[in-house]
Design a protein around this nucleic acid. Structure first.
Lengths: 237, 237
DNA sequence: CGACCTGTTGATACTCGTCAATCTGAGTGG
DNA sequence: CCACTCAGATTGACGAGTATCAACAGGTCG
């Protein structure tokens, strides 16, 4: 969490220490397990310590739409601090280590360190900015561009928390999950990925993504990292 | 703003009074005028007093995606309080009266009435919830359902601020704007609206929307107002 | 009155979904 | 150590939903 918060906010020593000593229940969770469900009213927030999760909603016809990938350092249901009933579900998509923090502890630390209120608020505002970008992505881009865009976002966010080396990273996301994220069918994801590979924009095998030409992938995905609101210019790297 | 905040948060007398005496510059703005633009770093937030506006982003190819309609009482760029550079534009889509409130005045009132921080934070969290629902709407529903859903949302939000009478309301939104909101072409919006009319779900002429059968429209749009997080059960009305 | 924006309609083309079969690789148990 | 299983990836054929293009109608406003 610290690393993630510091990628979007500058913390003082005291604040960092307060965060580090926050009581937290750590749990190991397998792949494809629900962390929270739509309709829940949790009394604690979850923090992804390692592994990947996703936030999603489901149509009346049972179609799933992933609205966000949750990466290490993310607080994907921080909203529950002020919205009593959850309007989305969160599940792991790889083995995860998840920390649970009581709402009362979060409220307490925010009261003692008012700047942390701003930091957490800012975190939720960036989530909202990502949702906005996804509405644009799903609403107005074709499947090829959409896919490239999502890959750019993932790479940039992973880089911000130190999980990218040499333009390569672990990416435990299936084609079915990508399909639910960009709003197309699994079959079409497969074809688009092959096209991206054929165009030399990505090397994606198993759980590993490598990007030989970041500039061209950015261009293909119409990717401008401004909406991620990262503090330093890690995005440019 | 008061009316809107009270639809999602219970205010005390003091808090209401503080909000009512907040310094605000009121400006009349014509249709299709920018209020703020992507890339701006405003030092004030805007409040829609009357009229309709929309938040949108634009693709590299120049395609527009509306990510939210801004109704009277909304604070559509409240995010700028903690995100310095805006990642979206806001324009009017009807003649509007807009109030501008300095960020410093908002910070000041939040410091004096800490519960207002929570109220404003909550407001931005509900915006995020709406974005999530829109990702689902655009990503996983067909045009007919999408259109019905957006109409349900508009009607519900307008009802929360007292702008609906007898299941009818003013709705100064063109078919081109609906198209940009639900991610389809203008032509297709036209056809879908005709279908909705033919099915007896809506009466939409000029700037006026009437809903003869709310339950059937809700069903057609797979609409569940939970994600709007309204305080009282106005949604059910 | 003419310009213009919005709404409407028809014809045609294309992106992408669906269905169904096959293939691959990573476990798992005997 | 190998057959078995199963999830995920891949491929082809076909169809549905929607985009695009183009033309025209109706209302508004300078």
């Amino acid at each position: 969490m610290i690393r993630k918060l510091e990628s979007i906010f500058t913390l003082s020593e005291d604040e960092r220490h307060a965060l580090q000593t926050l009581p937290m229940q750590v749990v190991a969770i397998k792949t494809d397990q629900a962390i929270v469900r739509e309709g829940d009213s949790p009394s604690r927030a979850c923090l992804i310590l390692s592994g990947f999760a996703c936030t999603y909603k489901v149509t009346a016809q049972g179609k799933r739409q992933i609205v966000s990938f949750n990466l290490p350092g993310d607080l994907p249901d921080l909203q529950s601090l002020h919205l009593t009933v959850l309007d989305n579900s969160i599940s792991t998509i790889s083995p995860c280590s998840v920390g649970f923090i009581q709402h009362e502890d979060l409220r307490d630390i925010c009261e003692r360190y008012p700047r942390l209120t701003a930091a957490f608020w800012r975190e939720t505002l960036i989530d909202a900015a990502i949702f906005r970008e996804w509405v644009l992505n799903v609403g107005r881009r074709d499947a090829y561009t959409r896919m490239a865009h999502v890959l750019c976002e993932l790479l940039t966010r992973l880089r911000a928390v130190g999980l990218v080396e040499d333009h390569a990273c672990d990416l435990p996301i299936t084609q079915g999950e990508f399909a639910d994220a960009i709003g197309v069918s699994t079959v079409h994801v497969n074809r688009v990925l092959q096209q991206l590979r054929a165009d030399g924009l990505i090397e994606l095998t198993g759980d590993r993504l490598k990007v030989p030409d970041w500039d061209r992938l950015k261009e293909a995905g119409e990717f401008d990292p401004t909406y991620l609101h990262l503090e330093s210019n890690q995005a440019a790297a």
